[in-house]
Design a protein around this nucleic acid. Sequence first.
DNA 1: CTGTTAGCGCTTTCAT
DNA 2: ATGAAAGCGCTAACAG
Lengths: 341, 341
Amino acid sequence: MKKGHQVTMKEIAKKLGVSVSTVSRALKDSPELHPETKRKIVEMANEMNYQPNLLAQSLRISRTKTLGVIVPEITSHFFASCISGIQDQANVRGYNIMICQSNENLELEIANIKTLVATQVDALLISLSRETNHYEHLFELYNREIPFVLFDRVQEDIPVSKITFNDVGGAYQVTKHLLEMGCKRVMYVSGPEDLYISKKRKEGYLKALKDFGIKEEKELIKVTDLTTEGNIKIAEEVLEMENKPDGVFCIFDPVAMDVMTLWKSKGVKIPEDIALAGFTNNPTSAVVEPALTTVSQPGYEMGKLAVSHLLDQLDGIASDDPISIVLETTLVPRKSTQTNL
Amino acid sequence: MKKGHQVTMKEIAKKLGVSVSTVSRALKDSPELHPETKRKIVEMANEMNYQPNLLAQSLRISRTKTLGVIVPEITSHFFASCISGIQDQANVRGYNIMICQSNENLELEIANIKTLVATQVDALLISLSRETNHYEHLFELYNREIPFVLFDRVQEDIPVSKITFNDVGGAYQVTKHLLEMGCKRVMYVSGPEDLYISKKRKEGYLKALKDFGIKEEKELIKVTDLTTEGNIKIAEEVLEMENKPDGVFCIFDPVAMDVMTLWKSKGVKIPEDIALAGFTNNPTSAVVEPALTTVSQPGYEMGKLAVSHLLDQLDGIASDDPISIVLETTLVPRKSTQTNL
DNA sequence: CTGTTAGCGCTTTCAT
DNA sequence: ATGAAAGCGCTAACAG
């Protein structure tokens, strides 16, 4: 199939016996132009169904008005919300977005960045893959002075603006909630330990324990690889402990869901036997039985803010100095932790 | 913030005292070139960190290797799956994608198409918004010979390829399932009646009734506007009927979820009092209590196939004649219809 | 008020 | 084996 021919200014010019620049001027409503000429050109442009070629414009001004977005996974509800926010805010500011997913894969993340840069996006919004454990590709972006921001999955050492959630605070909230509901032994199920979020949430967890005068216990921190198998293994391990926890806070909702599934199948009562909480507030968490206590993160807002700040920097409205924007999370208490109700 | 300068061939050429065309040839490994010159150029390009400007190439060849995608909503799990499939398959074929969401809004759909066309995407993949009730913008695309396909939310009269699910078949499956589970009075909760999917699913519903020798009853077909309020209103109306249905098939899972929520709050037992089924197989449906019987639609596959076919047409591998690809759906029987278990 | 010219970055004849 | 020139579609500086 051949794409249909697009009308160009040149063709309009030829048809009307004027020069291309006159057509250009007419179409952008330049004042220094005979009204009659202008009228004729505009008319003809409409008639021929002329549409400007943004590609050509972009090449000229070296700006595409396009932002590149890289997320680990589009199908995750959280990232979909971010994208939605990015999209909406980008449109408000007259930008388009080009989206790539890394599938949590470092190689793909690098490849995506390369493609987006090659297509001349004006800037990038990146949320790192889980696999990303070295950062040369980001430093290269930085060195090549291609503006970008990191959101949600960030790396602290890169000198660009970052938009994150208050993970420490969120984890603190859930842990505190579990303790307030009467839990004495609260476990934290972490993701891989080099993950930024793993660390931050652990920090909040420990802080809450400390505030309640509870000593950290090694065996009350477990690490999952975040696969379903890994999560289930943890759930089983917990049941085999002689001194079981009475409350478990999982780093992500999906982890908690896997744990819940296994426990339910083993007849464990939630929250009576063990209270359970997650983090992210996925749609499924509201609907599962028992409904899962979690922490909600405004992904849409995060996306909007990321774009606003990035474009503010691009437009010189905001300073180029990297800043860190931290969004607050909200505890969503539900049945899975209502031990005393 | 100013975007950093990108190295161009011109600069490499100048530095080496050769012409731009030589650089171009070296970089695309042309054979008719002195090996030594080539080596030097390639080396210098690496050293200077040269990256080709795809924009310039695109302008030259009038092809961007970019596909435009328009979906009603990115945050819907189903469309996110489609996008994921589109993305992956596009990458396989060396294409990028540019995504826009219409937010179920006709004006935005039209605006999105315009932008994507202006940015010179090579082709479009479109899933229509719910509001879309006239189709000039699509016929215009057609007339301007911009290749596109429609997926999931299609319009039958437009002479382009369409990828859809067998909605008639899916609706037939659920209805049949309800009848087989012992339901005598099965209701169909439809969306707005001019919606393509509303019609198709009604067709399947009626076909199943007929095959079971059951006569269509006007009061057993209800229409919701698909808002939560609308859905709840229907749920209430059903409870007020003197001759209630004993099985209800809702056009989408979210509708069924709203209905379920209301009924549960009123003490209606599902499936004992009334069996309930949806369509789409959203993640939440698997997890709600009782788990919702539904029909699963392979969105990821749909996305992949849409891209494959579209690019086959673009590349002349497939004929330009529009075809209709129909994907089969699968019944997912769950607790909400297990009346006899 | 309008045309000519040059240039954005790249590729591809056409010369040499 | 390499360079010069033209052109993709558009705009802006420079001349009239």
